[in-house]
Design a binder for these strands. Structure first.
Lengths: 244, 244
DNA sequence: CATGTATGAATGATCGTTCATTAACGTCCC
DNA sequence: GGGACGTTAATGAACGATCATTCATACATG
């Protein structure tokens, strides 16, 4: 730790280049083959060294997983963290920001993919898992707040915003399974699809929807529609132990 | 194989009770801890025998996984297999059948859950994987056909039915991650939520939606609404290599 | 010399799987 | 009716492979 800078100037470049390169390789391998199916030998071979050398950079295999997941969650949360406190923002635009950002992080740099997140969470130490889960909770909190604000302004249909948030995150998360770049929609097109799909699902009026699609955000002051009550699902008693 | 009946009459009951019990235990363990995290010793301990005994019932560990996944896919597909050939059915009702059935299978008999399906598919032999994937493709084909029929009749908004099908399956599949029975919505309530969420998302008119919610299926002949064009996503050039 | 980087060998654990063996039981023949 | 026989069910020990990890050591460089 102490002489990290000195070491790196001496060889190639800035601070921790080697560690970052290993981390990038681990990220790709984990997403491709799953955490348990990637051995330290695999990772060492990808980096071009013996397994023992990896322990000069990481304490355990689990700590590598932790850093990979942490990096991912930061990329998702950082661009939308400001939304939670912005009470006066446009919910439709905020939703667009969340969906596009989340999908971009989800589908960038990856070819095939496993659902690393769900499975590997159990491999983390309780301490590390707490960190990741709390970041996921932050994401859930933000998207729910946006939905609720839209409902309160009559922009969206009234329904359980927790479950609705799960639905949105689920659609985005699972693109990892079926989406292949270059074979159909682009990532941007897919994001647009999910965005409009979601807007309709939460009952945004068609006028708002089309206005937003054409870049016009002035549809905010259009007349309200009558609320549709979800007979079964608008009970607020739903608890959320884990999410997407 | 030959004296299977003879053996079972001799001991406890019908054909293959022991194998079925092991299979049920394996299913629960796999979904709880993930395929790779369940050892043959774990399974043997749950059943109450030595690991070697399991090889009297299954050739390999992978064949157990295969039978578990096969059973699950059959439960999902069998109740909706007739839909594909029924050209004159009501798309809204068919969609309801698909969603309710799929969610019920997904959430029945399970407490906590991993995304076994995605991760474990790669552990199957190419031969076995082909079987499971082809069943998943059947599911995708059915749901897409229903969506497309609804669009052609003007019941649903015009959009890419393949991507829409992925969205629906994604929402259902991922309930495994966050849903906990007894802590909020019931499974039936959640199914109703997803059903209505989906109907709105694919642009089913509010009248149809409410008619269906109240059990009235006569809304089929109501007047059509103008189609909304998905500017980005209605291109039919999307390919589908894998799905939910 | 000290520190970062890397090696190769070794460790203990766990994994799926095989093998030889044994007990229990139904069937069939005498 | 009572052994011989074959199948099922189960055992305990063992095998080879792989796993994450450790350790002593070596080289290069500031």
């Amino acid at each position: 730790m102490r002489g990290a800078e000195a070491k790196n100037t001496r060889t190639t470049a800035g601070t921790g280049v080697r560690k970052k390169r290993i981390l990038a390789l681990a990220r790709n391998l984990f997403w491709q083959k799953g955490y348990h199916s990637v051995s330290m030998r695999d990772l060492a071979h990808a980096y071009g060294c013996q397994p023992a050398n990896l322990y000069n950079y990481f304490k355990t295999k689990e700590s590598i997983l932790f850093e990979v997941l942490l990096e991912e969650m930061e990329q998702i949360i950082q661009p939308i963290a400001h939304i939670e406190a912005e009470e006066d923002g446009d919910p439709v635009e905020q939703l667009r920001l969340i969906i596009f950002g989340h999908l971009n992080v989800t589908l960038s740099y990856r070819r095939s993919a496993k659902t690393l997140f769900d499975v590997a969470l159990g491999s983390l130490s309780p301490r590390d898992r707490k960190v990741i889960v709390s970041m996921r909770d932050t994401y859930d909190r933000i998207i729910r707040k946006v939905i609720k604000r839209g409902q309160e302004r009559g922009l969206f249909v009234s329904c359980d915003e927790k479950v609705a948030g799960f639905m949105i995150a689920s659609m985005i998360t699972r693109t990892r399974i079926w989406f292949h770049p270059g074979k159909g929609l682009t990532v941007a097109e897919l994001a647009q699809f999910i965005f409009r799909f979601t807007l309709r699902a939460i009952g945004a009026r068609e006028e708002v929807e089309r206005a937003v699609a054409s870049g016009n955000t002035a549809g905010r002051d259009a007349k309200r529609i009558r609320h549709l009550k979800d007979t079964a699902a608008d009970s607020q008693r739903f608890n959320f132990p884990a999410s997407a």
